[in-house]
Deep mutational scan, measured.
Amino acid sequence: MTSCHIAEEHIQKVAIFGGTHGNELTGVFLVKHWLENGAEIQRTGLEVKPFITNPRAVKKCTRYIDCDLNRIFDLENLGKKMSEDLPYEVRRAQEINHLFGPKDSEDSYDIIFDLHNTTSNMGCTLILEDSRNNFLIQMFHYIKTSLAPLPCYVYLIEHPSLKYATTRSIAKYPVGIEVGPQPQGVLRADILDQMRKMIKHALDFIHHFNEGKEFPPCAIEVYKIIEKVDYPRDENGEIAAIIHPNLQDQDWKPLHPGDPMFLTLDGKTIPLGGDCTVYPVFVNEAAYYEKKEAFAKTTKLTLNAKSIRCCLH
């Protein structure tokens, strides 16, 4: 018999989150649709729960009410004593943790798909938090293969000092899905179709896995975050240069030392320094102006996964 890495157990509980950011409308629209008619997301033997994560922000069509829901799922915020004085999103995070967690427990949901849009030209993107997770690498390989020839990129946010504390991190297997470009507060049919297909293929993978299909060893190309880059700023902290036209919409493309990065209003080009080629992502993302992030630098690498098969009882 072929030796293989056996994944822990079959997958039982899956959640699909929309509206973690209330103005990213593809996930909101799909989740609302699936709450009314969820036939397309159901798979035999699998509990799939669509869920609106930040209903107040969705109602106002804004990213958040008090603070970013997708950055506060750490033990400090989840452990705060519940009171009306807490920011709305912290209270909501505790409610979500109660419903789908608790985080880092045996009772937490197996998989959470968190649906997002970006204003950046990132196409279909899967966000991975753990480079050693054979199950998710296999799932992402399946999704990428199923979507081809449509490109699907994998963004690895594993980093020693950049801690995200994402909404989906309460699950055993957290999956971020990011599709763009799409303006905030807008629905685009092409973007919706791409996100819908990503979810379909992900659920198909889980179904095949649960039925005992063995997935042979595989490898995927990923883009691992190195650092986030702020806009150049003046002495008052105001933005002093904008994304250069040569960099705009060039997510995932190589940016070499000396290539144009920013452009000042008086026409001066600010190039990339250093001696390493990087791959920019979230270029000129609207939501990241407040976070002082013009783009993120990534490096390209390959992740390998062992063969996996479900432990059938």
Rank of each mutant, 00 (worst) to 15 (best):
F262Y: 03
Y88W: 14
M82G: 09
N284F: 02
K81W: 14
S83T: 11
A7L: 13
R43E: 03
K200P: 00
L301G: 06
R196D: 03
D190V: 12
C218H: 03
A148K: 15
A39W: 14
A202N: 00
N210P: 02
T269H: 08
C311K: 06
V28S: 10
I41H: 00
A296W: 12
E129P: 10
K300T: 07
G176H: 08
K80I: 13
C67H: 11
L99K: 07
F113I: 10
P181T: 01
L247I: 10
I41M: 04
M198W: 00
F295V: 01
H244M: 01
S131A: 15
A241D: 02
I199H: 01
T118M: 06
H10I: 15
E290H: 11
I6Q: 10
L126Y: 00
N284M: 03
L150Y: 13
P160T: 11
G180Q: 01
D249P: 01
K292I: 13
G258E: 11
A240L: 11
S169P: 09
L147V: 09
L303A: 04
D249R: 03
V154W: 03
Q42D: 13
I52F: 05
V283K: 01
Q42I: 13
E221M: 03
E293Y: 12
S161A: 14
E129W: 09
D104W: 13
P217H: 06
P55F: 09
P271M: 09
D275H: 15
I41W: 00
D107R: 09
L150D: 14
P160M: 06
Q194R: 11
G185N: 15
D230V: 08
Y288W: 15
M139Y: 00
L162M: 07
Y155T: 12
F262N: 00
E95F: 15
G180E: 00
P160C: 15
I112A: 07
L78M: 15
R63P: 08
G212E: 04
I206G: 00
D74C: 07
N117Q: 02
K103Y: 13
N246W: 09
Y289L: 11
L99S: 14
L162V: 09
A171C: 09
K197M: 13
N77A: 15
T62D: 10
D130S: 09
H207M: 15
I308V: 14
H21R: 09
P160R: 15
K80C: 09
